[in-house]
Simulated assay, not measured.
Amino acid sequence: MATPLRVLVHGGGIGGLTLATLLGRRGHTVEVVELRDELDALGVGIIQPSNALHVMAEAGLLDACLDAGFEWEILTIADPAGTPRAEIPQPRMGDAPPANGIPRPALAALLADGARAAGATIRFGATIQDLTDDGDGVDVTLTDGSTGRWDLVVGFDGIGSPLRTRLYGDRYTPEYTGFANWRVTVPRLPQVKGVVMCMAGQEAKALLTPITDELMYLGAVFAEEADHRPGADTAHEELAKRLAAFSGPVAEALAAVTGPEAVVYSRISQVTVEDPWHVGRIVLAGDAAHASTPHLAQGAAMAVEDALVLADSLRDEDTVPDALAAWESRRRPRAMWVQSLSRAILKQEMGAETTPEEDELLKVGIPGAAHVLVKPY
């Protein structure tokens, strides 16, 4: 489209800020509305695989990500004592590095800086109160009383997406998988120069991920009851019990966790919106449309890919409806493949029964998936 658009992005997370940056750099008027009072983020890290770094390069943010994080290229598979069993080089997408670990707060800050530098504005402490799509635009009222008319409204508002509820009611509430993620930031061990995946049979897996020269995070997934919450004073002790089968670097990392306050616990849920991801000029993206389990480390990568393909589709198509149709036709198959394989890996690692379709997907495996996901999309 030759005419610049007015775009409202609902949600100031990784995908929403990336879209704001990309669209702002291309001359569109963008406002991000965020319910939180600031862009805080849980104090753990995130993996940026090569396909995510490719998007960061397109947004002009690659160097900032690498400066704030820890670039790596070898995935190490190890036994419970941390003894390497396989070292797997990670593939590159074009000129992007193979992978980067980065603290979530640092990523949130640099994405916000990138969006503002691109001309986008970020409005805090507000969400959508009402909206009406008349076919030519969307009239929006926010909870802070402000109003506006937009050519496009994008819901990058997470797995609990209020915008998804507005479009589809309670048809797509998050589905708890039966598993939860435990994470804690600790000092980086010198030998952890890339992701180290320590396996203790099918019962437990622990990941050590470098996120700066000084820091790494320890992550582990376990089956948990839906109503389980770690004790406010005992979370670190609970995590240590779950990882009792590990010695070596995992035990050394645990030894640095002396209190419960650093432990971050999150249930693993997923969402699959089977209806179209766009209704008129309103579109869902990222976790709002296709939240996955973390087993391919591709959740945030899928969100930023959504942002890049949406920006490209708005550039290449003549109308907003055409752009949204083109965007979804490219994004749905890839995002659903990531979701399906991620869930299959979770079930396999935890000894749960898999379907024949999942068994076929599992033949690709984690190393194979990395090679699939650096191909053009």
Rank of each mutant, 00 (worst) to 15 (best):
E305R: 06
V304K: 05
G286N: 12
T293F: 01
R281Q: 01
S313M: 14
A301Q: 00
R267A: 11
E305M: 05
D287W: 04
G259P: 00
P276I: 09
R330D: 12
E261S: 15
A325F: 00
S292F: 02
L284P: 10
D306Q: 03
G299T: 02
A255Q: 08
W277T: 01
D287Q: 10
A326T: 11
V279H: 13
E317V: 01
V264I: 14
G286F: 04
V279F: 00
A256L: 00
D318L: 13
W277H: 02
V283K: 05
A323M: 11
T293N: 03
G286D: 07
W277P: 11
G286S: 09
E274Y: 03
S329L: 12
S269Q: 14
A291G: 09
V250K: 05
G299V: 12
D275Q: 15
A323Y: 10
E305N: 09
Q270W: 02
V279G: 10
H295E: 03
D275T: 11
G259C: 03
E317P: 00
L254W: 12
H278I: 01
G280L: 07
V273D: 09
Q298M: 13
L324G: 05
G286M: 03
L254A: 06
A301K: 07
D275A: 15
V273K: 11
H290A: 03
A301Y: 02
V250E: 10
G259N: 14
D287S: 06
H290C: 07
V264R: 14
V309C: 09
V273S: 13
A262E: 13
E317T: 01
D275C: 08
L254Y: 12
Y265Q: 07
A300R: 04
D306F: 01
A251I: 02
V279A: 13
A291I: 03
G286P: 03
E317N: 10
R315A: 15
D322P: 00
P260L: 08
I268D: 02
R315Q: 15
D275F: 11
A255F: 05
T272S: 12
A289R: 12
P276C: 04
D287H: 08
H290K: 02
P321I: 08
A297F: 07
Y265T: 09
E328F: 03
A262V: 00
A285N: 09
W277D: 02
D312W: 02
D318K: 13
Q270V: 06
A301P: 04
R330T: 14
D306M: 01
A288M: 07
L254C: 10
A307N: 07
A323C: 08
A307V: 06
V250Y: 07
G280K: 10
R330I: 12
H290N: 15
V271C: 08
V309A: 13
V257D: 05
S329K: 15
A251S: 14
E305Q: 14
A326G: 10
V271I: 13
V273C: 10
A311K: 08
A256E: 15
P260Q: 09
P249N: 06
R315W: 04
T293E: 00
L310Q: 11
E274L: 14
